[in-house]
């Protein structure tokens, strides 16, 4: 079996940064979206977001998926939620 992957859907992202905050709290004991393994590139003018994950360092803890309220993140082998 290959390594689990986190599937991202930029179109569903609301820009709330809950994923990045959850990641940093879990992994670094501090709330800090600048330090997290998951990051958002934000185009503020158009309110568009690009989600990226540092796959080398990500521990696949899944905290970001649990924190996402907009179904922009899921395990790749799971069916999309509506």
């Amino acid at each position: 079996m290959g390594k689990k992957r986190i599937h991202r859907e930029d179109e569903r992202c609301s820009g709330c940064l809950s994923c990045a905050i959850a990641c940093s709290v879990f992994n670094f004991d501090e709330a800090n979206p600048s330090k997290s393994y998951i990051k958002l590139k934000i185009d503020e003018r158009k309110e568009r977001f690009h989600i990226s994950i540092d796959e080398e360092r990500c521990k696949l803890c899944g905290e970001c998926i649990k924190a996402c309220y907009y179904n922009a993140l899921r395990w790749e082998d799971e069916a999309p939620r509506s």
Binding site: S14, C16, E47, Y69
Partner: peptide
């Protein structure tokens, strides 16, 4: 699309 403030 839906948009949110931080942590919302």
């Amino acid at each position: 699309r839906d948009l949110a403030c931080v942590s919302c």
